[in-house]
Design a protein around this nucleic acid. Structure first.
Lengths: 144, 144
DNA sequence: GTAAGTGCAAACCGTTTGCAAGGAA
DNA sequence: TTCCTTGCAAACGGTTTGCACTTAC
C-alpha cells in the first residue's frame, strides 16, 4: 500500500483485492481465475482491470509470471535430456547439456505430489545479443 | 517415415518438410516460424496444416512443446526462490523448496550465453489427483 | 477405393487498446 | 483539481474447427 504510493501508484481497492487474491492463492492462477475470485467481492470489477493490474504489479516487481514463454506454443525435436537458457528480453531459448544437472536430487516431498516424468533446469537471463543492445557502445569512462 | 507408416500416419511431404525444419532448427520455433520456413520450399502449404501437423507429431511423441504452460499467463506472488511441479494432465503447478536445488552447478558454457538472473527446476509429471482419476478403481490382480 | 490429410474460411479465446467517465491524492 | 485508473467495447493475434477436395496407401 505505502509501497504502491511511494512508486506513484494509486492504491485503489480493485488493486488491493487483486493482489490479495494472488498472495492468498497458492495455485498460480491466470487472469480469468483471478477475475472470477475477485468479482465475488467486487462485483463491478471488469476483466480488463484484472489484466491491466496484473501487468502493473508485474512491472513493479510485486508479482511474477510463472511461464515466461506463454505467448505461443514452441516445439523441440531434440528429445535428449537437456536444459534451457531463456532470454527474458527476446524470448530466445538455447539448449545446454550438463550431466551434473541430469540427475537432480528431487526432494522426497515432491514424489508425494505425484508421478514424476522428468525434471530439467530452466535458467533465465539476458542473452549476449540483447545485453549488447541494451548498453549501446558502453560509454568509455569520462565521456558524457 | 517408416515409423510414421507403422503408426498409421501417412508420410505426406508437408509432414516431412515440417519435421525436417524442426529437427534442423535449434531455435525451438513456434508454428508461425515453421510455417514461414517451410512455405519457402512448399509454397502451397497452409498455416493450418502446420498447426495440425505439429499437434500430430507431438501426439506421436516425435516432438515436444518446450513450454507446457503456454496457454495463458499465470502469476505468482511468492517471490522467494522455489521450484515447480507441473502436472501435464491438468496443468496445476505446485511450488516446492529445496536448498540443494537453490544453488545449482550451472556449467561455465551457459555463463557464456548471457547474464544469468535465476535458475530453477521444473519437474513434470502427473499429480496425485490426476493419477488417481486415470486408473479408476485399479483392478485387483486376478480380476478381469 | 478408402480413410487420412490438406486448404480455405470462419469461429474461438485470451489479451490488448482507445476513449470517456470515475476516483485517489 | 489533476492525473491515474477503471469500465466498456471493439480490435487483435494465435489457435482450432467444419467442410469439401486431394492424396498416400
Amino acid at each position: 500500500m505505502q509501497t504502491c504510493r511511494e512508486r506513484g501508484m494509486k492504491a485503489t481497492h480493485q488493486r488491493i483485492e487483486i493482489f490479495r487474491e494472488l498472495a492468498a492463492s497458492g495455485a498460480h492462477p491466470d487472469a480469468e481465475t483471478v477475475y472470477q475470485a475477485v468479482s465475488q467481492r467486487v462485483p463491478s470489477i471488469s476483466r480488463d482491470t484484472v489484466y491491466r493490474t496484473l501487468a502493473t504489479l508485474e512491472a513493479e516487481g510485486f508479482v511474477r509470471k510463472i511461464n515466461p514463454l506463454f505467448e505461443r506454443a514452441r516445439y523441440d525435436a531434440n528429445l535428449d535430456h537437456h536444459h534451457h537458457f531463456i532470454c527474458t528480453v527476446c524470448g530466445s531459448v538455447t539448449d545446454f547439456c550438463s550431466e551434473r544437472l541430469d540427475n537432480l536430487p528431487i526432494p522426497a516431498s515432491v514424489e508425494a505430489l505425484g508421478e514424476i516424468d522428468s525434471a530439467h533446469v530452466q535458467v533465465q537471463g539476458i542473452c549476449a545479443a540483447c545485453a549488447h543492445n541494451r548498453k549501446p557502445t558502453q560509454p568509455p569512462a569520462g565521456v558524457l
